[in-house]
Every structure is written in C-alpha cells, then in structure tokens.
Design a protein around this nucleic acid. Structure first.
Length: 521
RNA sequence: GCGCCCGUAGCUCAAUUGGAUAGAGCACCUGCCUUCUAAGCAGGGGGUUGUGGGUUCGAUUCCCGCCGGGCGCACCA
C-alpha cells in the first residue's frame, strides 16, 4: 500500500475516533520545504471549520490528530507534529528509509503498485490518425502522451488497453485512392485530392495505398517506441453491419428523427447545443454516426472507462459524443484529454502543415533530425493544455544541453560506478546506506516514486514524471560530487546499494516517458 | 458574437490540484577536474504569477470583468 494511502486511512480513523466526524478526500501532499517533513495534511483546518461551534480550537484539534497518528504510524514515521496551527507534518524514519532503499536496489520493478486493481477496465484511445498520409509532429504529441499515460496506468496496476482507431472508410479514403490512381494512370490529381510527394511514392507500388500508409504509420510508431494493444478498423464496423445496427437501436429508443432528408440525433436531450446529423440525406453516415457505433462497441467489449486523447481542433466534438454515449449506457465513464496544438517552426519561420497540399513535416523527419529520446522528452514534458511552438532547428541546437541528457547522464554515471565496483574489496564498516545528508534526501525521494506514477494516472498529466526525474537526478549529481562510492580501490557497500536503487528508479521513470537509459555516455 | 484552452524570471517550462519562503533548465557572471564519466558541482543577479475586483484562516490555483494568444462553432473528418 502506498504511504499516502496509509496516512490517509490512518487520519480518517483518528478523526472518526476522536471527533466523531467524517472528512472525505483527505489531502496528503508533499510540503514544499523539506524541513517540514515528507508528508503534510491540512485536514485539521477542515475539522476545525466543521467543529467551530463546539468550542474546539485549531491547535487542540491538530494535537489530538498528531497523537492518534503517532500511535498508528510508528513503524514508518519517526516524527509527527504540527506547525502554524493546522499543518500536520510527518517525517519518515531513517530505519524505514534504509530498509526501503535496500529493497529498491534489489527490485528493478520498483514503482509498481496495485493502486488501480479492481478499478475497472480502461480503454485508452489515441493518435487514431487518418490513413491518408504519414504521421506528423502533432500526432507525435498524442503518441508520446498517450503511451506514457498507458505505461503509468499499467505500472499502477490498472487493467488498461490501448487502441488506435483506423479511419479506413469514408470520403477522405476514397479521395486518397483516387489521387493515387490518377498518378498511376498519368492523369492530373483532382483539385480537392491529395498532392503530397508521398502520393507519387504510393503510385509506384501496386498495393492498396491505404494499406501502405498504415504500414508507414505503424513503422513510425514503432521507431517512436509507442505500442498499441489493438488496431481497430472503422471499415469493419460498416462491413459487419454494426453501424446500421446501432442506427436502428437509436431509432428504437426514439433518439433520432428525420428532417430535411437526414437523420438527426437528439443530443440536446443530453446537454448539447443542437441536434446532430448521424446519417446524411445521401444515405451515408457522418463521422459522428460511425463514432457512436464505435463507442458502443467499446462499451460492449466490457470497458468501464473510456479515455480519448484528442487535439484541440476537436474539442467541440466532445459534448455530442458524450451525449451519445450516455444515451447508450449511463455507467460508463467517458473522458477526453484535450491537447493543445503543436505549431511547427523552422528557424523562427512558421511551417504551415496541410496533408492535402502535401506541405507537412513528418514524424519520421523529426525523428531523424533530433532523435527519439529528445523528441519524446520534449513532447511529454509540457502540459497537454499548453500550446507548443516547436522549432525544429532550435530543438537540434539545444539538444546538447537538453535536460534529457541530464537524466541519462545520471543513469550512465551510476552504471559506471557499478561496473567499476565489481570484484573489488569492500570498505570495512561501510554497511550504512544513509550515511550522509545527501543520501537521506535521495532515499526520501525514492520512497515517493510509486506515488508519482499513481498521480500521473489520477491527473492524466505525464509531464510530472519529468519533474520528478529532474529532482532525483539533481540529488544524485549533488551526492556524486560530494561523496565517493569507490574510494582508493575499495567500495562503500551501503552507498553502492543507494546508487543502485537510484539507477533502478531512473530506469523505470525513463521507461514511463519512453526514453532510453544508457549504460554509457 | 458564443464556447473551450493558455498567459508565471530575458527564453522554454514546473509548482504534488486551495497551503507554509513561487522552483528547474537555457542564457549571463564567478569559482571547482592527480582517485567512481566536468553532458557534472558550488555560488550570484533576475518575479506586483497579463490586469482589475471577489470568495476565506490562506489564491499562480476557484468565481466575475477586461487585455493578449491558440482552437472550435458543417448533412467535413
């Protein structure tokens, strides 16, 4: 069980026992100032507010909670007290930290927890680019965020699957095939068709261009270290009659009606601004109409929670799909992470991207120029709701002093120490794992690693991992410059355990954000 | 016009979701390599958190107005 959860549970019990009240969502956080301890709760303020008519004073309340916590948490915490009236601070004991650090050093899977166990089946859908062209830098943002979220969920014990929805049906697909076919027959590409260079490349083959593009996309994602559990074809929904079936279901429920020759979904019943067309007057389904079927299918596959990552250009679409889903099933939880757009620049000049005109910079090009680690770090380190101006020249220039190397360097340094410490004698009496203030700070940081991963799943903000790793790497570099693990040909046993633990955490943390952990740099 | 998102150090971004003295990297200045990797470490300058109100013990965070930027308001996807 996570320490945060333990504290929360204990606090909840203490408050019920001592005051007979219930506080839900008890906050347990890390104080800014490390001298206050490892954990803080401000629950006393809330209890005080609840009991203000009964003559309790804030310090009395705090001191009673502290008393109760001391009894319940003596195994892990050496100091529990309160400050400034209601800030209750808890400090992990050195003995506990030493024991934990030793465990971490022997466990490459440290960071895993069972926090998400029993919390339902999750389907995470992201990228889902149209197979009408190569992936570009915008898709890369969703890919890096989605994959890191997925890794955090898995590590936190959730039952989660990732999925890429292939829009392999509809107008755009027809248009792309026509564009390629035109080139093959030596004709002009239709005005509203696709004009990118890759169209000519596709025309050289005899294969179905959609299939080829899909292969390109899969290759790019593999290079980007992004994995999907399932690739779901839109076309399969049409072919199996599932779209028609869903349409009929909505009709039976009285949720669609005919007007001006088209069929409309009554999304206003569920809070949308207006009703939306699901089937056009020419008999074809709209994207929305098919999407309802797709999401119904997700629900029927037994998922309780649907998380989608979309670009900000689709945010107006959230409400109507939400409406449709709640009309089918009210238990399923539907969440959309809206990511702001990525604008591309080269030497300060904006690069307009359009698949139609072929004016794009592909993910592959950027990968070739700046490398996977730099790009994944860059894209995951920024909160999804901030707009990104990505300058490819700037990214290359900065790559020398990119923070990602700071993290990797810490890992490589430790790897070096571990290599050099093999087969050399140990310093006598060097068993202490925490024998310096710097070691202690490191151990305290390591203790919070599983919670950081869980926090990513709760906030859906993977950039937190980059902040954590920078902190940890910084603590290690400080330790390294001040203390020696190998001294005069002999190794300090306890410190070797400590740096090994740091290595395991760095590696796992880098894995969460899809960055390699090199042994040598 | 209506809706969603953003505005924090010269630049790029954090801030554990309402907590204690708002932190990192880059850039700039000053030091540190005869022992484990200097892609590092130590120190310095740099802020009215766009702006004006409000809510409360407490606001970068929540609410309202204004300014600036992005995105959207289809029988397109």
């Amino acid at each position: 069980m996570l320490l945060k959860e333990k504290i929360r549970e204990a606090t909840d019990k203490v408050i019920t026992e001592k005051f007979g009240v219930n506080i839900d969502n008890i906050d347990v956080t890390y104080p800014d100032n490390p001298s206050f301890g490892d954990y803080t709760t401000t629950v006393a303020f809330r209890v005080s507010k609840l009991l203000k008519d009964k003559g309790y004073k804030l310090p009395d309340i705090s001191s009673k909670i502290v008393e109760g916590l001391k009894e319940k948490l003596k195994e892990e915490f050496s100091e529990i007290n309160f400050l400034n009236g209601g800030f209750i601070n808890l400090k992990l004991s050195k003995e506990y930290l030493s024991k934990l650090t030793e465990e971490i050093s022997e466990n490459e899977e440290y960071g895993k927890s069972d926090f998400g166990r029993g919390k339902g089946k999750i389907l995470l859908e992201y990228v889902s680019a149209n197979p009408t062209g190569p992936l570009h830098i915008g898709h890369a943002r969703w890919a890096s965020i989605g994959d890191s979220l997925y890794r955090a969920f898995i590590t936190s014990g959730y039952d989660i699957k990732s999925e890429f929805y292939i829009n392999d049906a509809g107008n755009q697909i027809t248009l792309l095939r026509e564009s390629v076919e035109a080139v093959r027959q030596g004709k002009e590409i239709p005005e509203n068709g696709y004009h990118g260079e890759y169209i000519y490349e596709l025309a050289k083959t005899k294969e179905d261009p959609i299939k080829v593009i899909l292969e390109w996309q899969k290759e790019d994602l593999t290079l980007f270290d992004v994995h999907f559990d399932n690739w779901f074809s839109e076309k399969s929904l049409h072919d199996s009659g599932y779209v028609d079936d869903t349409f009929n279901l909505l009709k039976e429920k009285g949720l669609i009606y005919e007007k001006d020759g088209a069929w409309w979904f009554k999304s206003t019943l569920f809070g949308d601004d207006k009703d939306r067309v699901v089937k056009r007057s020419n008999g074809e389904y709209t994207y929305f109409g098919v999407d309802i079927a797709y999401h119904r299918n997700k629900i029927e596959r037994g998922f309780d929670r649907l998380i989608n990552i979309w670009g900000a250009d689709h945010h107006g679409y959230v409400k109507r799909l939400e409406s449709a889903i709640s009309s089918i099933n009210t238990d399923v939880k539907f969440e959309v992470v809206i990511g702001q757009m990525v604008s591309l620049y080269r030497n300060g000049e904006p690069v307009r991207m359009s698949k139609r005109t072929g004016d794009i910079i592909t993910l592959r090009e950027v990968l070739d120029e700046v490398g996977k680690d730099v790009l994944r770090y860059y894209l995951v380190s920024k909160k999804v709701d901030t707009h990104i101006d990505f300058d490819i020249e700037e990214a290359k220039k900065q790559s020398e002093d990119n923070p990602v190397y700071y993290l990797q360097y810490a890992h490589a340094r430790i790897s070096g120490i571990l290599r050099n410490s093999q087969g050399i004698p140990e310093i006598e009496g060097s068993k202490d794992i925490i024998d310096t203030p710097e070691s202690e700070e490191i151990a305290r940081k390591l203790a919070k690693f599983p919670e950081e991963i869980v926090d990513i799943t709760l906030s859906l903000e993977p950039q937190r991992m980059t902040t954590y790793l920078l902190d940890l790497a910084s603590l290690f570099h400080k330790f390294y410059s001040k203390h020696r693990v190998i001294d005069n040909g002999k190794v300090h046993k306890g410190r070797r355990v400590l740096v090994k633990a740091v290595k395991n955490v760095l590696k796992k943390g880098l894995w969460i954000i899809g960055v390699n952990a090199p042994e040598v740099m």
